[in-house]
Protein backbone atom coordinates (compact mmCIF):
# COMPACT_ATOMS: atom_id res chain seq x y z
CA UNK A 1 0.00 0.00 0.00
CA UNK A 2 2.82 2.38 0.87
CA UNK A 3 4.62 1.57 -2.34
CA UNK A 4 1.49 1.94 -4.43
CA UNK A 5 1.99 5.62 -5.24
CA UNK A 6 5.72 5.40 -6.01
CA UNK A 7 7.12 4.09 -9.28
CA UNK A 8 10.82 3.26 -8.89
CA UNK A 9 13.10 4.59 -11.56
CA UNK A 10 16.30 6.44 -12.37
CA UNK A 11 15.05 9.08 -14.80
CA UNK A 12 15.73 12.80 -14.38
CA UNK A 13 12.25 13.20 -12.89
CA UNK A 14 13.22 10.71 -10.19
CA UNK A 15 16.69 12.05 -9.47
CA UNK A 16 15.72 15.72 -9.45
CA UNK A 17 16.00 16.98 -5.89
CA UNK A 18 12.65 16.48 -4.07
CA UNK A 19 12.85 19.94 -2.47
CA UNK A 20 13.11 21.51 -5.90
CA UNK A 21 10.33 19.24 -7.14
CA UNK A 22 7.99 20.28 -4.34
CA UNK A 23 8.75 23.94 -5.01
CA UNK A 24 7.93 23.48 -8.70
CA UNK A 25 4.75 21.60 -7.85
CA UNK A 26 3.48 24.59 -5.90
CA UNK A 27 4.52 27.11 -8.54
CA UNK A 28 2.98 25.03 -11.31
CA UNK A 29 -0.32 24.64 -9.45
CA UNK A 30 -0.46 28.38 -8.82
CA UNK A 31 0.40 29.13 -12.44
CA UNK A 32 -2.54 27.05 -13.61
CA UNK A 33 -4.88 29.48 -11.84
CA UNK A 34 -3.34 32.60 -13.42
CA UNK A 35 -5.25 34.31 -16.22
CA UNK A 36 -3.14 32.93 -19.03
CA UNK A 37 -4.22 32.47 -22.59
CA UNK A 38 -5.72 29.07 -23.23
CA UNK A 39 -2.86 28.07 -25.55
CA UNK A 40 -0.32 28.52 -22.76
CA UNK A 41 -2.38 26.51 -20.26
CA UNK A 42 -2.82 23.75 -22.82
CA UNK A 43 0.94 23.63 -23.41
CA UNK A 44 1.56 23.43 -19.66
CA UNK A 45 -0.88 20.55 -19.30
CA UNK A 46 0.67 18.76 -22.29
CA UNK A 47 4.16 19.13 -20.83
CA UNK A 48 2.98 17.49 -17.61
CA UNK A 49 1.42 14.58 -19.50
CA UNK A 50 4.71 14.10 -21.33
CA UNK A 51 6.59 14.11 -18.03
CA UNK A 52 4.31 11.32 -16.82
CA UNK A 53 6.04 8.91 -19.22
CA UNK A 54 9.44 8.93 -17.53
CA UNK A 55 7.83 9.27 -14.09
CA UNK A 56 5.36 6.41 -14.28
CA UNK A 57 6.24 4.35 -17.34
CA UNK A 58 4.27 4.08 -20.57
CA UNK A 59 1.58 1.72 -19.31
CA UNK A 60 0.70 3.79 -16.28
CA UNK A 61 0.99 7.25 -17.81
CA UNK A 62 -2.64 7.53 -18.89
CA UNK A 63 -4.16 6.03 -15.75
CA UNK A 64 -5.18 9.42 -14.26
CA UNK A 65 -7.15 10.21 -17.41
CA UNK A 66 -9.03 6.94 -17.12
CA UNK A 67 -9.95 7.64 -13.50
CA UNK A 68 -11.01 11.19 -14.31
CA UNK A 69 -12.91 10.49 -17.50
CA UNK A 70 -16.42 10.93 -16.01
CA UNK A 71 -15.43 14.26 -14.56
CA UNK A 72 -13.89 15.43 -17.81
CA UNK A 73 -17.13 14.59 -19.58
CA UNK A 74 -19.05 16.51 -16.93
CA UNK A 75 -16.90 19.58 -17.43
CA UNK A 76 -17.50 19.39 -21.17
CA UNK A 77 -21.26 19.05 -20.76
CA UNK A 78 -21.89 21.42 -17.89
CA UNK A 79 -19.57 24.35 -18.53
CA UNK A 80 -20.83 25.77 -21.87
CA UNK A 81 -24.48 26.45 -20.78
CA UNK A 82 -23.22 29.06 -18.33
CA UNK A 83 -21.70 31.14 -21.15
CA UNK A 84 -24.17 32.74 -23.49
CA UNK A 85 -22.25 35.83 -24.71
CA UNK A 86 -19.93 36.00 -27.62
CA UNK A 87 -19.98 34.39 -31.02
CA UNK A 88 -22.45 31.52 -31.26
CA UNK A 89 -20.81 28.37 -32.57
CA UNK A 90 -23.46 25.66 -32.27
CA UNK A 91 -27.23 26.00 -32.00
CA UNK A 92 -30.06 23.52 -31.80
CA UNK A 93 -33.30 25.09 -33.07
CA UNK A 94 -33.26 28.39 -31.16
CA UNK A 95 -31.21 27.00 -28.27
CA UNK A 96 -27.62 28.21 -28.00
CA UNK A 97 -25.41 25.27 -27.15
CA UNK A 98 -21.91 26.61 -27.52
CA UNK A 99 -20.43 30.08 -27.74
CA UNK A 100 -16.78 30.93 -28.26
CA UNK A 101 -16.44 32.19 -24.68
CA UNK A 102 -17.99 28.95 -23.45
CA UNK A 103 -15.56 26.93 -25.53
CA UNK A 104 -12.57 28.83 -24.22
CA UNK A 105 -13.76 28.52 -20.64
CA UNK A 106 -14.26 24.76 -21.03
CA UNK A 107 -10.78 24.35 -22.45
CA UNK A 108 -9.27 26.45 -19.65
CA UNK A 109 -10.96 24.29 -17.02
CA UNK A 110 -9.91 21.08 -18.77
CA UNK A 111 -6.28 22.16 -19.11
CA UNK A 112 -6.15 23.36 -15.52
CA UNK A 113 -7.73 20.22 -14.16
CA UNK A 114 -5.64 17.81 -16.22
CA UNK A 115 -2.45 19.79 -15.58
CA UNK A 116 -2.91 19.86 -11.83
CA UNK A 117 -3.89 16.19 -11.71
CA UNK A 118 -0.77 15.30 -13.65
CA UNK A 119 1.65 17.44 -11.68
CA UNK A 120 0.61 15.66 -8.50
CA UNK A 121 0.69 12.32 -10.29
CA UNK A 122 4.21 12.91 -11.58
CA UNK A 123 5.46 14.17 -8.22
CA UNK A 124 4.22 11.19 -6.21
CA UNK A 125 5.15 8.62 -8.85
CA UNK A 126 8.70 9.88 -8.95
CA UNK A 127 9.30 10.66 -5.26
CA UNK A 128 9.34 7.94 -2.58
CA UNK A 129 7.21 8.80 0.43
CA UNK A 130 10.06 8.87 2.93
CA UNK A 131 11.70 11.52 0.75
CA UNK A 132 8.45 13.46 0.69
CA UNK A 133 8.42 13.47 4.49
CA UNK A 134 12.09 14.51 4.66
CA UNK A 135 11.35 17.30 2.18
CA UNK A 136 8.50 18.58 4.30
CA UNK A 137 10.85 18.43 7.31
CA UNK A 138 13.36 20.55 5.39
CA UNK A 139 10.67 23.11 4.70
CA UNK A 140 9.96 23.31 8.42
CA UNK A 141 7.42 20.57 9.24
CA UNK A 142 7.73 19.85 12.99
CA UNK A 143 9.27 16.52 13.95
CA UNK A 144 6.10 15.37 15.68
CA UNK A 145 4.08 15.89 12.53
CA UNK A 146 6.65 13.96 10.49
CA UNK A 147 6.51 11.17 13.06
CA UNK A 148 2.72 11.04 12.79
CA UNK A 149 2.93 10.68 9.01
CA UNK A 150 5.52 7.89 9.23
CA UNK A 151 3.58 5.99 11.86
CA UNK A 152 0.33 6.35 9.93
CA UNK A 153 1.95 4.58 6.99
CA UNK A 154 3.15 1.90 9.38
CA UNK A 155 -0.40 1.38 10.73
CA UNK A 156 -2.41 1.50 7.49
CA UNK A 157 -1.54 -2.10 6.45
CA UNK A 158 -2.37 -3.29 9.98
CA UNK A 159 -5.77 -1.61 10.07
CA UNK A 160 -6.51 -2.94 6.58
CA UNK A 161 -5.76 -6.53 7.53
CA UNK A 162 -7.71 -6.13 10.77
CA UNK A 163 -10.68 -4.99 8.72
CA UNK A 164 -10.45 -7.98 6.38
CA UNK A 165 -10.06 -10.50 9.18
CA UNK A 166 -12.84 -8.98 11.24
CA UNK A 167 -15.25 -9.06 8.31
CA UNK A 168 -14.31 -12.71 7.67
CA UNK A 169 -14.96 -13.53 11.32
CA UNK A 170 -18.31 -11.76 11.24
CA UNK A 171 -19.33 -13.44 8.00
CA UNK A 172 -18.76 -16.81 9.62
CA UNK A 173 -20.79 -15.98 12.69
CA UNK A 174 -23.61 -14.55 10.63
CA UNK A 175 -23.29 -10.98 11.88
CA UNK A 176 -22.20 -9.47 8.58
CA UNK A 177 -23.78 -9.88 5.19
CA UNK A 178 -21.94 -8.52 2.23
CA UNK A 179 -23.39 -7.42 -1.04
CA UNK A 180 -26.20 -5.25 0.26
CA UNK A 181 -26.65 -1.62 -0.63
CA UNK A 182 -27.55 1.68 0.93
CA UNK A 183 -28.81 1.97 4.45
CA UNK A 184 -29.03 -1.78 5.16
CA UNK A 185 -25.45 -2.16 4.04
CA UNK A 186 -24.34 0.47 6.53
CA UNK A 187 -26.35 -1.17 9.30
CA UNK A 188 -24.88 -4.55 8.39
CA UNK A 189 -21.43 -3.03 8.70
CA UNK A 190 -21.92 -1.74 12.25
CA UNK A 191 -20.83 -4.98 14.02
CA UNK A 192 -17.75 -5.23 11.80
CA UNK A 193 -16.76 -1.60 12.20
CA UNK A 194 -17.36 -1.78 15.96
CA UNK A 195 -14.95 -4.72 16.24
CA UNK A 196 -12.39 -2.96 14.04
CA UNK A 197 -12.56 0.20 16.14
CA UNK A 198 -12.33 -1.69 19.44
CA UNK A 199 -9.31 -3.58 18.14
CA UNK A 200 -7.52 -0.47 16.93
CA UNK A 201 -8.40 1.74 19.90
CA UNK A 202 -7.26 -1.05 22.23
CA UNK A 203 -3.87 -1.07 20.54
CA UNK A 204 -3.27 2.62 21.31
CA UNK A 205 -1.98 2.18 24.90
CA UNK A 206 0.33 -0.68 23.87
CA UNK A 207 1.78 1.21 20.92
CA UNK A 208 2.20 4.28 23.15
CA UNK A 209 4.25 2.12 25.49
CA UNK A 210 6.42 1.11 22.57
CA UNK A 211 6.95 4.72 21.52
CA UNK A 212 7.85 5.79 25.04
CA UNK A 213 10.10 2.73 25.35
CA UNK A 214 12.05 4.03 22.33
CA UNK A 215 12.79 7.23 24.20
CA UNK A 216 10.15 9.54 22.77
CA UNK A 217 9.55 12.41 25.20
CA UNK A 218 13.10 12.88 26.53
CA UNK A 219 14.15 16.46 27.10
CA UNK A 220 17.41 15.94 25.21
CA UNK A 221 17.25 17.13 21.62
CA UNK A 222 16.69 14.38 19.04
CA UNK A 223 19.26 14.00 16.30
CA UNK A 224 18.17 13.01 12.82
CA UNK A 225 19.98 10.35 10.86
CA UNK A 226 18.02 10.33 7.64
CA UNK A 227 18.72 13.52 5.76
CA UNK A 228 18.38 14.76 2.21
CA UNK A 229 21.73 15.46 0.68
CA UNK A 230 22.72 19.10 0.39
CA UNK A 231 25.76 20.54 -1.34
CA UNK A 232 26.23 21.48 -4.95
CA UNK A 233 23.54 19.22 -6.35
CA UNK A 234 20.92 20.89 -4.21
CA UNK A 235 22.17 24.33 -5.21
CA UNK A 236 22.07 23.61 -8.94
CA UNK A 237 18.70 21.92 -8.76
CA UNK A 238 17.17 24.74 -6.73
CA UNK A 239 18.62 27.36 -9.06
CA UNK A 240 17.35 25.41 -12.02
CA UNK A 241 13.89 25.10 -10.49
CA UNK A 242 13.74 28.84 -9.82
CA UNK A 243 14.52 29.48 -13.48
CA UNK A 244 11.75 27.10 -14.53
CA UNK A 245 9.39 28.75 -12.07
CA UNK A 246 10.11 32.17 -13.54
CA UNK A 247 9.53 30.80 -17.02
CA UNK A 248 6.20 29.36 -15.92
CA UNK A 249 5.06 32.69 -14.53
CA UNK A 250 6.65 34.81 -17.30
CA UNK A 251 3.78 34.72 -19.84
CA UNK A 252 1.72 36.89 -17.48
CA UNK A 253 3.96 39.81 -18.38
CA UNK A 254 3.78 39.08 -22.07
CA UNK A 255 -0.02 39.15 -22.10
CA UNK A 256 -0.52 42.41 -20.31
Amino acid sequence: MIESSYHPGKTFVHTFDPRAKLFLLIVYTTAMFLPFQIEILAVYAAVMIILAFPAAGIRDAFSPLKVLLPLIILIIILTPPFFREGEVLITYNTWIILTDSGLIRTCVLLSRFIGITYVFFVFFRATPLNQVVLTLRWYGLPIKAALIISMTFRFIPNVTSTYHRVSDAHKLRGSFQSGMWGWSRLKGLVPVLTSVLIQTVKSIPVMSMSLEHRGFGRTIRRTSYQRLRGGRKLFTHLTFSIIIALMLIAPIFLVR
Binding site: T162, R165, V166, D168, A169, H170, L172, R173, S175, P191, V192, T194, S195, I198, Q199, K202
Partner: peptide
Protein backbone atom coordinates in the same frame (compact mmCIF):
# COMPACT_ATOMS: atom_id res chain seq x y z
CA UNK B 1 -17.79 -24.59 8.77
CA UNK B 2 -16.93 -22.57 11.89
CA UNK B 3 -13.57 -20.86 12.26
CA UNK B 4 -11.81 -20.02 15.50
CA UNK B 5 -9.33 -17.34 14.52
CA UNK B 6 -6.03 -17.19 16.36
CA UNK B 7 -7.02 -13.75 17.62
CA UNK B 8 -10.23 -14.07 19.65
CA UNK B 9 -11.07 -10.36 19.36
CA UNK B 10 -12.05 -10.22 15.70
CA UNK B 11 -15.69 -10.98 16.39
CA UNK B 12 -16.24 -9.25 19.74
CA UNK B 13 -18.54 -6.23 19.40
Amino acid sequence: TGYLFQNPDYQIF
